[in-house]
């Protein structure tokens, strides 16, 4: 990213952090939701944009983490934040490890089908099983308590606190993903996306790298799912169904696959469009779909690609961040 882009991201984060002081409750809660989905979409982008693995089952990890919080919460009382968070992310990661071990050996449309199949298995497990509320799902009556060594750090029941916590999580994850992109691991994923066969010939055990990426992406999706369950106080089978997986994939494509900030942008535009078009018509999905089709047709690099059209990267900067296009 260029310095100007970093400045734009920093300004955006500052604005989001200051929001609780000037915006009303509805706007702040809307921003929290967008941030959670920015996190969710960014986790998927690790697979889609970097490793070139298009998954249609990513909501499975998002939804399962929410269920872990719901199941671990006492009925009318707040659950401890840190332990339930670790549990939720851990379960999502373990699930990703189990599913990933089977699916990362496949490629292209087979990977898509395999992830879709596992996502649907999870959906039916929670939908048809009676251990977690069946098709109604579960309610979380109290948000987790953010205490550390007996000291209450923040109160998630207050929407402002919740917003700041979500923002901090999102910023931390984005910094981590930025570092990851430039790391040896990130470069291996780029290489796998562009030419996996050659990566193997160079001596990279590509399956292992794809599996680690799958587990990381699953764990981060779990973090997003946990926060989402906190915010809405309800988890249901829809949260891990293929509709949800498709929606988050569209956010990634809308914002720009492979771009660091693209998925966050995609999440913002997605929820912004829903809000905007719902103000006009009950059939809001129709104009929203038209916009998505238009982006797919005219902006193959997504909305983040608009930036690169206005300001083409210099040749030297290209070394760090050349994406496909020429392939």
């Amino acid at each position: 990213m260029t310095r100007l882009q970093w400045a734009a991201v920093a300004a955006g984060l500052a604005l989001l952090a200051a929001m609780p002081w000037f915006a009303d409750k509805f706007a702040v809660q809307f921003a929290s939701k967008v941030l959670i989905f920015a996190l969710f979409a960014s986790s998927l982008n690790l697979l889609v944009g970097q490793a070139g693995l298009v998954s249609l089952g990513h909501a499975g990890f998002f939804g399962v983490a929410g269920y872990v919080l719901a199941l671990a919460s006492p009925e009318y009382d707040a659950a401890p934040l840190w332990s339930t968070l670790a549990m939720a992310v851990g379960v999502a990661a373990l699930l990703a490890l189990a599913i990933g071990a089977l699916v990362v050996r496949t490629r292209g449309v087979y990977f898509l089908m395999a992830t879709l199949a596992f996502g649907q298995m999870l959906f039916h497990l929670f939908h048809d099983g009676d251990f977690a509320g069946g098709s109604d799902g579960l309610q979380i009556f109290a948000r987790p308590a953010g205490t550390l060594f007996g000291v209450a750090l923040f109160d998630l029941e207050q929407y402002r606190h919740f917003h700041w916590v979500v923002l901090a999580a999102c910023a931390l994850v984005l910094v981590f993903l930025a570092r990851l992109r430039a790391s040896p691991f990130g470069r291996v994923l780029d290489g796998i996306r562009v030419n996996e066969h050659r990566m193997r010939a160079l001596g990279f055990a590509t399956v292992r790298y794809k599996l680690v990426a799958f587990v990381l992406a699953g764990a981060l999706a779990g973090l997003a799912g946990y926060l989402s369950a906190c915010q809405f106080g309800v988890v249901n089978p829809e949260s891990l169904g293929w509709h949800q997986s498709g929606a988050v994939l569209l956010m990634v494509i809308l914002g720009g696959m492979g771009s660091l900030t693209g998925p966050a942008l995609g999440a913002a535009v997605w929820w912004g469009m829903e809000l905007f078009f719902q103000g006009f018509t009950r059939h809001w999905q129709l104009p929203m779909g038209a916009v998505i089709v238009a982006v797919a047709l005219f902006l193959p690099d997504g909305l983040a690609g608009l930036w690169r059209r206005v300001r083409p990267p210099r040749a030297v900067a290209a070394e760090a961040s050349v994406r496909e296009g020429a392939a």
């Binding site: 570092r179 430039a182 790391s183 040896p184 691991f185 470069r187 780029d190 990279f204 790298y209 994406r323």
Partner: peptide
Amino acid sequence: FLPFTVFENCRLAAQSRLATSMRFLRPA
């Protein structure tokens, strides 16, 4: 790797000689 620079092609090849590329934070 057509979309990468000449140097990155060779750097990635040379990176394969690291004991592991499971390094997540330090810049490549």
